[in-house]
């Protein structure tokens, strides 16, 4: 075999292997999504969205309280994490760019982004659930907010850094103080990117389970306030899937499909927004 033949043969083998890896990887993942859609879609009927959970064995009931609980806690978490994260990101971009302190805040945020979410849940259990003496929707929302925070602050920082320096200089030259320039010029220039980052963070925490296990816990009833254990989709899914009852398994597939659908739609919409913006 000549040298050239050997090279082309090795090339072909590697190409086939890599193509195979590509096909296997994609096929496995499409298999998962397909299964979730096929098994989950039939469970989504009217009562799934409107009724409270029923005991096993009765082919009725729904997860209305869990759906509402997840929405409320995600919203509360967003309201807490966004101001915190935007201010922190503002400091990182505007004042702490080359400082050592800025570098350490950045470093710690990047670690927190991927820190185990179950440990965050445990931390909130220690500082909130244990001191207040009971599980609560607020504790769940705080745990989700902590997970969102580093994502929001880092994307805010990146988006603000994209705003050209000339804009700041022009506004400063007009005599405007910095605290007026930020909301009136810089945030406005970066707003769509910041919203993208926030939406992606929302999509991420909406599907989180581990941080809610010891904070919001779960509940089969409507919550009267966020001061009590709060039903939510992901922990309900976990409990239902681990149970031995077939009708609960069906509901669990339904919940999995609903969560996947919600997370994917938010992600896709956000990406479309981003693409539209970059075209302009």
């Amino acid at each position: 075999m000549t040298r050239m033949q050997r090279r082309t043969m090795i090339n072909r083998i590697i190409l086939i292997l890599s193509g195979l890896a590509g096909v296997i990887g994609l096929a496995m993942l499409l298999w998962i999504v397909g299964d979730v859609a096929i098994k989950g879609a039939p469970a989504l009927n009217w009562s799934f969205f409107t009724e409270l959970p029923a005991p096993p064995g009765m082919d009725e009931g729904g997860l209305a309280n869990a759906i509402v609980g997840t929405l409320i806690m995600t919203l509360a978490a967003t309201l807490m994490a966004v101001p915190f994260g935007v201010f922190a990101g503002t400091w990182l971009s505007e004042f702490g760019r080359d400082s050592r302190l800025g570098e350490s805040v950045r470093y710690v945020s990047d670690i927190l982004v991927s820190a185990p979410s179950i440990v965050i849940g445990m931390f909130v259990y220690i500082v909130m659930v244990k001191t207040m003496g009971h599980f609560s929707g607020w504790a769940g929302a705080v745990a989700l907010a902590i997970i969102m925070l580093p994502v929001v602050s880092r994307t805010t920082e990146e988006m603000l850094k994209l705003v050209p320096h000339e804009l700041r200089e022009a506004a400063l030259a007009l005599g405007a103080p910095y605290w007026k320039i930020m909301p009136q010029v810089i945030y406005r220039a970066a707003i769509s990117g910041m919203i993208t980052g926030i939406m992606l963070a929302v999509a991420r925490v909406a599907g989180e389970t581990a941080p809610l296990l010891f904070t919001a816990l779960n509940s089969p009833y409507w919550a009267h306030s966020m001061n009590e254990p709060m039903g939510n989709l992901t922990v309900t899914l976990f409990n239902y899937a681990m149970s031995p009852y077939d009708d609960w398994h069906e509901k669990a597939w339904g919940a999995a499909f609903l969560i996947t659908l919600a997370v994917l739609s938010v992600t896709i919409i956000t990406r479309l927004m981003l693409r539209k913006r970059s075209k302009h």
Binding site: A88, T90, W91, L92, I120, I126, V127, P150, S153
Partner: peptide
């Protein structure tokens, strides 16, 4: 106004460090 704005944003940025330390200590 500017120094207030600067300190305010700094407080939140430091909040991230405090949070991290708080997790470890708790």
């Amino acid at each position: 106004g500017d120094s207030l704005f600067r300190s305010l944003t700094l407080a939140f940025a430091l909040g991230i460090l405090v949070l991290f330390a708080g997790i470890l200590i708790a």
